[in-house]
Design a protein around this nucleic acid. Structure first.
Length: 888
RNA sequence: GGGCGGCUAGCUCAGUGGGAGAGCGCUACAUUGACACUGUAGAGGUCAGAAGUUCAAUCCUUCUGCCGCCCA
């Protein structure tokens, strides 16, 4: 005897979800060990920053990973999802510095050792917060395998990679243009630089000719850097300036002569078509400077103040002389902040008549995403990775189809990034992170070693001294995350995990870090782990607000999944609602909370279908036990056929990452097909014998198909029904071979639905109250179809009478069913129906009368059109008969 | 400047070379063997515009317009 618990009337996610999650943790259902007997499946969780809070982007990307892992586990694969966190070098350090500032302390007065100690304590206290959010969202990574980028093992991997790259000549130290954050006092990675729109001016300055001529007018947004100009560049094809190329112009105030040069990088439409060239403070200018062998004096120092005299690297005395000579004349600006200097210089140039025009200008400025400070590009002695030799094999692999991108077009973004790759600045002037494995002798000889002992040994061997000091800089955070897919499996040790689970099957991430992160994992994975780190890269859409705007606190449109969604809709509702909106080809997701609300109501709907099933007087025979086929009714056969189609569609959708389609399919089947039609149909007396078994069977398979998206409600339903196994998490994926399909009976029931809809419509037209039974006449020949007659009577709430007639197939006879009401409304209704059908017949006839259509369209299409026309004609005939039969 | 995505009902979005769809919202009715976090019915759209290809275009091609993203 099946237990029949009293089930609460509404489903309460707040009660169910934490309880089930605890049970899963206790049973360690998410943990896997390498098992060669099963196909490996693994996802490396992109490590969230320890400073991070769970936001909607996480909810969408990480739900996807959870879904895919759960799905593959149910398919019987050795599926694992390894979680972890990123130490988030600059992000964390700036949070800590801010915290210290609140107490009136600074990093430097604490000293490195103490600061690192505080950082670890902070990590212990707050670093796990995001994991709490992930658990609340139902994510099931293998918590026993959690990794942190600063773990000893991962740090050892970082050191090894650094040393190997250095030994191979791929890491070098040099002076290059870098992104400098004057507030954080460190270089930044591309990822930490954002463009911000600002209102400023475009200043037009006249540089007179050295020969006393008018010279030319340049346009600039950064007049203060003109002190370090070394040339004026024009486009070689620009007729306006051709005569000046090769001549010199003179910088106002400081009276230094610089050449006019031609370079293709100059845009003729921008400003006046002539631009100042300041190689030490602008990327484009730096490249022009390199091409033309120009000197590169620096005018803004690390504090973003004007440096006077200018300072520079690697210059010969001849090239330095004229630049040094201007020092006395720029003394008034020395030490001024760059923006104060700008005002002062603009004023002075104006007084001198060198300022031709000041035009309001809207532009984008590079801003540090950490400190909010405007970035100062400047020349600095830093460590770099030579990227072109690493990118080459990655590009070759891409041309060979690896990795495979979904959607495909993101592969082109990735490849374009690799083609235009520049050397990677990896040194940061902060303390929280992997300190460079670099030591210097007192003579500044460079030693790269795995540890200090080795460094000393090398120093003795090579230089005869063992007095070494370590480079204080740390590595860019992306250096360690670039090793993630193999470092978390134990590399460089040859572990069973690495052997079994590398390469990963799929990397799931969002498109803003395709180049920053994905490409680096590929390059480093190829070189160090001996293979592409993953076969497929699935790129999830970026999340925007419902009107397509970026979510931000300042706009007030940010939605916090933990505060705003989970409490209201449950984790299931949140996950289902988000996934429902994911479309493969779409690159943005305009998040609409209504989908979460709908998903929550869907959970309640399913819950009530369960309550109905459990409250039936009939017994459920057992888990996945169907009545013998000869006992199944037309409705039973139809719902089983639909279930099978649903599982097939969902399987296909999961396999192709069409997650929105999967969610749509589940909702459609669960709510409309199953609850609205099948559950209603089981109320007919003829259904009683089979319904408990069929309802239970369908629900059991259905919740398994839905489990990867909404893990909790599906577990709760599955547990309540008869089931095999301990938890749905480790249950098997529904096997379509075990779901019988009956195409003919399914078609018959679809006709029943169509007829019932017509009858309900008629009921509404005739103003028959829902509580009243309506009269329906069926052709006498339909009487033998007891299932069908009962289904119509139940679903349309109708009293059945018969009339003579009813030829043809069962479906024909169903179509001849007619509602009975002796009112003028009925006549109107039929007249309208007649008109609609006449129009359809006319359209179809016209089409078939078109000789080109019949001759050129494919035979299938023509045949289908003929069949449609026949159908319309038959229906029209029935309507006309009905109309004629009505009393005048 | 280069590349990419989008424009379908009031809102958010599916969809298809051959009869325009869903949810929400709106209107009306209803407490029927689970469910008002419900059910039933209904109103609402020259599928951004133009040209082309085709027997046939909301769908393919080109151009235009507008919105957005990425790279420079």
């Amino acid at each position: 005897m099946t237990a029949r618990p009293e089930l609460p009337k509404t489903y309460d996610p707040a009660e169910v979800e934490p309880r089930l999650y605890e049970a899963w943790l206790k049973a360690r259902v998410f943990h896997e060990d390498p098992d060669p007997a099963r196909p490996p499946f693994i996802i490396s969780m992109p490590p969230p920053n320890i400073t991070g809070r769970a936001h909607l982007g996480h909810a969408s990307t990480y739900t996807t990973m959870d879904l895919v892992t759960r799905y593959h586990r149910m398919l019987g694969e050795n599926a694992d999802w390894i979680p972890g966190q990123d130490h988030a070098a600059i992000a964390t350090e700036s949070v800590l510095v801010r915290e210290l500032a609140k107490e009136g302390r600074t990093r430097n007065e604490l000293g490195r050792e103490k600061f690192i100690e505080i950082a670890w304590a902070w990590r212990e206290q707050y670093g796990g917060e995001i994991n709490e959010a992930f658990r609340r969202l139902g994510f099931g990574p293998d918590w026993d395998r959690e990794r942190f980028t600063l773990d000893p093992a991962l740090s050892a991997a970082v050191i090894k990679v650094f040393v190997d790259l250095y030994d191979d000549g791929l890491i070098y130290r040099g002076t290059r243009l870098v992104y400098w954050d004057p507030k954080a006092q460190s270089t930044l990675s591309d990822a930490e630089v954002e463009d911000e729109e600002r209102d400023t001016f475009l200043w037009h300055l006249r540089y007179r000719g050295e020969d006393g001529g008018d010279g030319l007018v340049i346009a600039t947004t950064r007049p203060e850097t003109y002190l370090a100009d070394v040339a004026v560049a024009v486009h070689p094809g620009d007729e306006r300036y051709r005569h000046l190329i090769g001549t010199n112009v003179v910088l106002p105030i400081v009276d230094r002569a610089i050449p006019v040069i031609a370079d293709d990088a100059v845009l003729t439409e921008f400003g006046t078509g002539a631009v100042k060239v300041t190689p030490a403070h602008d990327q484009t200018d730096y490249e022009i400077g390199q091409r033309h062998g120009l000197p590169m004096p620096t005018v803004i120092d690390f504090d973003a103040r004007i440096a006077a005299p200018l300072w520079r690297y690697d210059e010969t005395p001849e090239r330095r002389a004229p630049i040094d000579a201007q020092a006395p004349k720029m003394a008034p600006y020395a030490g001024l902040d760059r923006f104060d200097a700008r005002k002062r210089i603009v004023a002075d140039l104006r007084a001198l008549g060198a300022l031709v025009e000041e035009r309001p200008y809207h532009t984008q400025l590079p801003v540090s995403s950490r400190s909010g400070e405007v970035i100062e590009p400047l020349l600095s002695l830093q460590w770099f990775v030579r990227m072109k030799p690493l990118a080459k094999p990655a590009l070759a692999a891409y041309r060979g189809g690896a990795p495979h991108f979904v959607p495909e077009r993101f592969g082109r973004t990735y490849a374009a990034g690799l083609e235009n790759i520049r050397d990677w600045n990896i040194s940061r002037q902060i303390w929280w992170g992997h300190q460079l494995p670099v030591w210097y002798t007192p003579n500044d000889d460079v030693i790269v070693a795995h540890d200090e002992d080795e460094a000393k040994r090398i120093a003795r061997e090579r230089f005869g001294i063992d007095d070494v000091r370590r480079d204080p800089d740390t590595l860019d955070t992306w250096f360690s995350s670039g090793l993630w897919p193999f470092s978390i499996l134990g590399w460089p040790e040859k572990t069973p995990e690495l052997d079994h689970w590398y390469p990963n099957q799929v990397m799931i991430t969002s498109r803003d870090i395709i180049f920053l992160w994905v490409s680096r994992m590929v390059m480093l994975g190829q070189r160090f782990a001996g293979a592409m780190p993953f076969r497929t890269v699935f790129v999830t859409p970026l999340v925007f607000d419902v009107h397509g705007r970026k979510m931000s606190k300042s706009l007030g449109n940010a939605i916090d999944p933990m505060d705003d969604l989970v409490p209201r809709y449950g984790a299931d509702g949140t996950r289902f609602g988000i996934l429902r909106q994911m479309r493969l080809e779409s690159q943005e997701l305009r998040f609409d909370e209504r989908y979460c609300d709908e998903a929550k109501r869907f959970a309640t709907k399913l819950w009530n279908a369960l309550r109905y099933t459990c409250a039936l007087p009939e017994e459920i025979p057992g888990a996945n036990v169907l009545p013998p086929r000869e006992k199944l009714t037309v409705a039973d056969k139809w719902i089983l056929t639909e279930l099978r189609a649903c599982v097939e569609a969902v399987t296909r959708a999961y396999d192709r990452f069409e997650l929105g389609v999967a969610a749509d399919t589940l909702l459609q089947f669960g709510w409309y097909t199953f609850c609205d039609w099948y559950v209603e149909a089981t109320k007919a007396p003829g259904q009683h014998a089979t319904r408990a078994a069929v309802l239970s069977f369908v629900l059991n398979a259905f919740v398994r198909a839905m489990h990867p998206i909404a893990p909790f409600v599906t577990e709760e339903i599955w547990q309540t029904l008869p089931h095999d196994g301990a938890t749905i998490v480790t249950a098997s994926w529904p096997d379509v071979a075990e779901i019988p399909s009956f195409p003919d009976e399914a078609a018959v029931f679809r006709s029943v639905i169509e007829k019932v809809e017509q009858l309900r419509n008629a009921r509404s037209e005739w103003a028959i109250q829902p509580k009243d039974w309506m009269r329906v006449e069926i052709p006498a020949a339909l009487q033998s179809e007891r299932d069908v007659v009962e289904a119509i009577a139940t679903l349309a709430r109708a009293e059945i009478a018969t009339y003579d007639g009813g030829d043809g197939s069962v479906r024909d006879r169903i179509l001849a069913v007619r509602g009975v009401a002796d009112t003028a409304k009925l006549r109107e209704r039929y007249a309208r129906e007649e008109k609609r059908l006449e129009a359809e017949v006319a359209r179809s006839e016209k089409k078939l009368a078109n000789e080109s259509f019949v001759a050129k369209a494919s035979p299938d299409v023509v045949a289908a059109e003929r069949a449609k026309l026949d159908e319309y004609r038959r229906e029209l005939a029935r309507v006309r008969t009905a109309l004629d039969a009505l009393p005048a």
